Amino acid sequence: MVGRKALISGGGSGIGSAVAEKLAAAQVITAIADLHAPEQSRKSTHFFTCDVTDASAIDGLFTDVQQQVGSPDILVCSAGLGVHEKLTEGDPDKWQHVINTNLMGTLRLIRAFVPAMLEAGYGDVVIVSSVSAGQAYPYGGVYAATKTALEIVAETLRHEVLPTIRVTVVAPGVTDTAFFKNTLSGSQTAESIGYGALTAGQVADAVLFALMQPPGVSINHITLRPTAQGF
């Protein structure tokens, strides 16, 4: 891992921030892309302001990362947004924002940064999904749909970049981060769901486990949950 270069979307908080911390500790040159800078600045990471829903912002991010860090050989797509609304009553503008963040943001990052990995002949792409992928539940339709789509995107990407790049999906259950506070609609918290919760660091450990496999070994999907969580 020493000397590798990573870019983490949504790296300013939550799971993305925990991943950035662990990669930096493993002596990976680490870049963070987020709307807001981390609460605690780290000398070992580079921060770039970026709205992943904005195509021009992704173009600017690509240019800035290339100039200041170089071509990443690890891309962690962690930027995400939740919405908890009934399909017959919710706000389509909010739904579109979640789709643009969770799905289109990831697609744009893949399109921008993966070609250089293919040219270099190696790399890792990690997509942070959710146990909600493929799981219908009341008020979660739009969010779950974006995570389901991401898992299809990940598997499609895996086939398209074989055998050069490894693609990993990490699908956590309830995780105690600011995700619930930042959800566009809904009043859930990690505590109110009632299963207990993972920490962001525990999810980041799963990411690191996948990345630290020897060349030729791919961990393509990791699901982790609080033990009491039923789905």
Rank of each mutant, 00 (worst) to 15 (best):
Q68M: 15
F48R: 15
V19I: 15
A145F: 00
E85L: 03
I32A: 02
T168R: 06
T189D: 04
L109M: 13
T148Y: 05
A145M: 07
A145D: 02
A6N: 08
A31P: 12
F113V: 06
L224R: 10
L7Y: 00
S17C: 14
L118D: 07
A190V: 13
Q213H: 09
V69C: 10
Q135Y: 04
D64F: 04
G16Q: 08
P215E: 05
R108D: 01
S71G: 05
G10M: 01
D93W: 07
P38H: 02
E151I: 12
A178F: 07
A33K: 15
A120W: 06
Q135H: 09
A55E: 13
G12V: 03
S129I: 05
I29N: 15
G194W: 02
G11K: 06
G141T: 11
A171F: 07
G12H: 08
Q68R: 15
P115C: 11
P92F: 00
A136Y: 09
A178E: 10
G80M: 04
H221V: 14
T175Y: 00
L184D: 03
Q40G: 07
T177G: 04
C50L: 14
G141M: 03
T63L: 11
V76G: 05
P215I: 11
P138E: 01
S187E: 13
K94Q: 10
A204C: 11
R4A: 09
V174R: 00
N182G: 01
G10A: 01
I165P: 02
V19E: 02
L81D: 05
D93Y: 04
Y137P: 15
Y137K: 15
V170Y: 04
S9E: 06
H159N: 08
G216E: 08
T164I: 12
K181Y: 03
T30Q: 09
D176V: 13
G201H: 06
L23N: 03
A190I: 12
Q135G: 04
T88A: 00
R158P: 02
W95V: 09
A79R: 09
P226M: 04
K43M: 14
L61E: 06
E155R: 14
I32T: 09
V98Q: 06
S129W: 02
A197D: 03
E89G: 07
S192R: 11
I110F: 03
K5N: 06
A178W: 03
V128H: 08
D59T: 09
G230A: 15
G201V: 10
F209L: 15
K94E: 00
A55K: 15
T177K: 09
